[in-house]
Design a protein around this nucleic acid. Sequence first.
DNA 1: ATAATCCCTCTAGCAACTACAGGTTCAAGT
DNA 2: ACTTGAACCTGTAGTTGCTAGAGGGATTAT
Lengths: 162, 162
Amino acid sequence: MSETRQDIGIGELARRAGCLPETVRYYEHVGLLHETSRTEGGQRRYGEEAVRRLTFIRHARDFGFSVEAVRELLAMSDRPDMCCDEVDTIAKHHLEEVESRLQRLSALRDELQRMIGQCAGGKVESCRIIEVLSDHQLCDSDTAHGGAHDLGEPPAAAARRT
Amino acid sequence: MSETRQDIGIGELARRAGCLPETVRYYEHVGLLHETSRTEGGQRRYGEEAVRRLTFIRHARDFGFSVEAVRELLAMSDRPDMCCDEVDTIAKHHLEEVESRLQRLSALRDELQRMIGQCAGGKVESCRIIEVLSDHQLCDSDTAHGGAHDLGEPPAAAARRT
DNA sequence: ATAATCCCTCTAGCAACTACAGGTTCAAGT
DNA sequence: ACTTGAACCTGTAGTTGCTAGAGGGATTAT
């Protein structure tokens, strides 16, 4: 590897990867990004390699890989001569999780649609939605959403969209 | 309403609704459950009404409603003579969220499947998975997973399964 | 020289709980 | 009556993956 100039500030780096400087510092803090060189005044300076690494991280996170999984993927991409079985394993494991979440989500959607379809729009007293929520027996399937509380949106996600 | 006996301990209540005592105290803390009577020694005692209320909460959470949404649903179920339009609105809004999440998740699944299918199983150097993660250009669709990081599993979910 | 940005560290906050620590109370058995 | 053991209490810290703010210092452009 040749020496590259380290002349990118944290703000520029973040902008190039589509995140905030705070996020960069966070990744450094949790060890996804190495500590980098500093100016005399103590400000971080990065090179192109950091841009690539951060882009990889953001991209993997966009794919829904956990930070832990990203850590492993990074470790592997740092050793290009290794066998990529493990990469494959992580991706497949992630795919399985995504698929199981898809199943539970679509069962949940069906149940919600049923609930809403049955609500006649009268008083709360006779509301099917409240009824179904009050009495599990009224559900179509018992297995359909046993773990649906796993499907909540992480708080940061909403904020990121604003 | 007739006076009912308050002779259920927090552990029994939690067990009946399928959660932990800590969760019950948490719901009290955030105001989903009213404060209840106590023994002389200061321990909480509940009646059947609390069992129903907690069951409703757990059930709504299972459906993926946020705690805030549950709070609103509870407020409405407490007023049975009200019009249930608002219940309907909350449920429909939730359904929309579920559907959009479904779409993004299935786009993500397709992309993961494509990635995995293309990995020939050699060295990391030539691994398609790493390549795709490194270079967004290699993705099929750019719109497919722009918000896929919304799909991570809340931390508590994993713990709850252990 | 000075103003406008940028950047620094540290801490707290979000959701929705879970998990302790260190102490108290209850119910049952002897 | 006493003792044991389980259940309970409060309060705080941890989880994930960031984001936001306070209260400063550094860099850059004019």
